[in-house]
Design a protein around this nucleic acid. Sequence first.
RNA 1: GCGGGGGUGCCCGAGCCUGGCCAAAGGGGGCGGACUCAAGAUCCGCUGGCGCAGGCCUGCGUGGGUUCAAAUCCCACCCCCCGCACCA
Length: 992
Amino acid sequence: MSEFLKILREIEAKWQREWYDNRIFEPVIDEEKTKFFVTVPYPYVSGPPHIGHGRTFTIADIIARFKRMLGYNVLYPIAWHITGTPIQAVADLIAKGDPDTVKRYREYVMLYIDDPKEVDKIIEEFKDGWKIAMFFAKAYERDFKSVGLSMDFSRQFTTGDPDYNAFIIWQYQKLREKGYITRGRHVVLYAPAEGHAVGEHDIKGGDEIEVRIQEFVLIKFKLSGTDEYVVAATLRPETIFGVTNIWIRPDAQYVRALVNGEVWIVSKECAWKLQYQDKEVKMLEELKGENLIGRTVIAPLVNREIPILPAWFVDPDVGTGIVFSVPAHAPYDYAALIELKSMRDILKKYNIEEIVEKIEPISIIESNLGTEPAVEVVKKLGITSQLDKKLEEATKMVYQVEFYTGKMRNNTPLSGVSVQEAREKVKEMLREVKMLDIMYEVEPKGIVTRSGNKIIAAVIKDQWFIDYRDPKWKERALKLVNEIMRIVPDKYRQQFNATIRWLELRPCARRRGLGTRLPWDPEWIIESLSDSTIYMAFYTIVKKLRSSGISDKLAELVKKVYEGSEDAINTIEKFFDYIFLGIGDSKEVAKLLECSEETVEDIRREFLYWYPVDLRHSGIDLIPSHLTFFIMHHTAIFPENHWPRAISLNENVIREGRKMSKTLGNVLEIARLPRHYSADLFRLYVASSADLESILDWRESEVQKIASQLERFWKVCNAILELGPPLEEYTFERVHTLSKKLISIVNMMTIRGREHLENFRIREYVVDVFFNLLNEIEEYMNVYKTCNIDVDEARYVLSYVIERWIRMLQPIIPHICEEIWHKMGKLTYVSCELWPSPGPLNWEIINAFEILERTLEDIKNIIKSRETRPRKIYIYVGPSIELYDLTNMLIDMLERGMDMRSIMRELSRQEKYRPIMNKINDILRKIISGVIPRIRTFRDVEYEVFKSCEKYISYRLGGIEVEVQDAEKPTYDPAGKARQALPGRPAIYVEW
RNA sequence: GCGGGGGUGCCCGAGCCUGGCCAAAGGGGGCGGACUCAAGAUCCGCUGGCGCAGGCCUGCGUGGGUUCAAAUCCCACCCCCCGCACCA
């Protein structure tokens, strides 16, 4: 086996060199041919590609190769995404010498470079993010070539290239002019120590924990006898009506601070965080929590004076570090209350015995849990300490049940109102009396960046957004999704609809990372998902831009834009307006860019020839993000005739039943494939083991099985080649029925296979064209001698078959097919060959063989009934021709959807059928019940196939002698079986 | 919570859109046989139950319904998976 893979790898390397050196996948405009433009989202090149990328790009490649076979001028280009913060973040960590990151990247580099000194050098260079991007862009190219992708590598660019920046500048000018860009407040995760917002990749363990930003309601309690506020934080403002006291942690640090002009008392941590949440904070004085204990505050809305009491469950790093207590509805509060009541020393110390004594829970909500759920749950769980871990769970439970089923009681001003509604109303009421504020907290608490710095929630006041809310825009996008675009598998269409409907504001720029700057505000860098929406248009022209020198001009212009030049923006706009939208005048544009008018026209022609995108293939994870933006932005910027035509999607890849992840260390990189497996093996596995909408599990044992199938294929092909070409000319009419069957099946596969691929049913295609045909061909090779078929006839049949077979398998396993193709003496590349043209296909014979298969099943079933081996089997084929006509007519009627009753009614109206209505009834029942198969068949063909296959049937039955007789005139029929023969169901007699 | 998808035989997984050759494709596993000194690989057969001359019964998350006929259509319920934003 490994010997075979070794040979295969050599074959693969050879043909890859041939293809790429001869640039056979780099199409140019050809007005004679219809173009087909297929793209996969360019990868983000922060590391090496793995088999998940491999799956997606291979599937697109299969389609690209298939379309090429159908005569399309296929463009399948590639580029590299470097926009955003992750690459930057890696570069920063490497610069800092972060050991984990250095180790990981060293491993990555070692996939490609053997020399350890060289590796060191490269890692050193990785302090520069740009170098990381360049290294992995090259790695991707190498890896993509190593699996034989029929990709045009001559149109490569990165999203950091200046001409691409110019293109993005144009795009954002368009969006802004259309009014789709706005600015406003935005809450983000933020690392104050690092001075920037953090994304998932910046967070330690970010790929595993789910981080959320929670909105806390701050309620201000006026400290009695002062103008200062004790500010409590809560997720349940509606419980204010049941407040009994304030909890403060006696040993924690609190501060008096001037917050937006008011004096607030909050925890020290809180005051620090509020600075980042668009609040003006000035520290006045620090104080210990216990200094406040015993004092009283006024609860807003209820206007009750309540005491400040000590509690230890209060966390100064959550919210304000101050909690208002609602013991009837909050388990923590109740637990703290009863515990405090028992703490004699503490009560005495703060002199609060009397106050605490009097406090009882105040119930204000009635729900499925009753009226005092906190009290009950604490008692039920036997909780005696406020630090009991069970309180967490209990709180969650009470919170949920009261939220969904709770109603406010009549001791509140919102009597009868649901908790959900009351929450909003209370916020409104508090806002009116100016006792409300908002604070954001990160959940779960304690998360840090990869460098170990604390992450908090911060408010950005002047964030740039793309505003997707315009209903007209959404309408256009929905039209594209539902009326124009093909989506495969279709079930994902709903997700696009849902995402478009749900889209609102999306922040589109950041202050950090690689990418293009906003032309009107160059402090901001356009964020990565926002600069990758319509770039497929850039593929069409990038080659011409570069060869004509326009790219250099654009680079200068971009520089000027960043320096604030309006003129430069203008020039860029005019240029791309003409190229992509046909707006303006080529003369003027040529003058602005200092180039010839032809150059401009030439570039415009490229775009017009290749656009729109005919197919965008991608993993399903991009549906709610990139792919929806791809749709939205096309409809925003381009006219309808340049909107994309189709999206196809595939599910993820896992390995041995588990998700591939860095933490598990089970990621299989493409770079490892040519070492341990092979390109065609990978491709065949990807194509055969899961359809698009299923998760593909890379299992070593399964891969090995596919490898042995591939070897079997290789052996069969070589065996055919060894037989050589036929010496004589044959025609379809002349050959044996088994030969006719094989030829018919191959030709049938050219039709059915084409349908499969047109509908992206790649797996079914492989099952039919690779596996099923392989079985058919192999069996033919095994039996032709037994069935007295002449060797030369077999040569004719097999060389006819293989010529078509290899072409059809080329999209799946191109290397091995290329090799066999050339071994056949062909001088062309099979990768550039056309789909096989139609050839002889006799359905009657195929059908007759299906009947033969069923008959074999029946015979086996009968044989099973006894221990002994039968001496001989007689098969009686072909009742009267009238019976065949009748049966075929009835099958037709059923296929047309008629039911039994109406068939009988219709036929009884015709004179000629009236005498045989009983017979008709009988046949019809047999068809409906399946005794007679619903296969149109003809007496002479059925008989001929059976008669000519006596030997074959015998072979299939393990050598038992078989004789086929004409059911109309049997010569030996001791059991009188011949009479029982039906169309499509020969009678059987077994002689023991 | 909101949105999307799904529950099929020992396991994985087709089929359901367009109801009937569906006891339900194809793998895997298991059992039996061939080959082999043997093992492995390979090939053939069996793999719901009951029959033992090609037949019958039970069956596709649960419970109802429509129909001559339902894995397939309708309703309700239970359970599972995925996405939820500034991140590629």
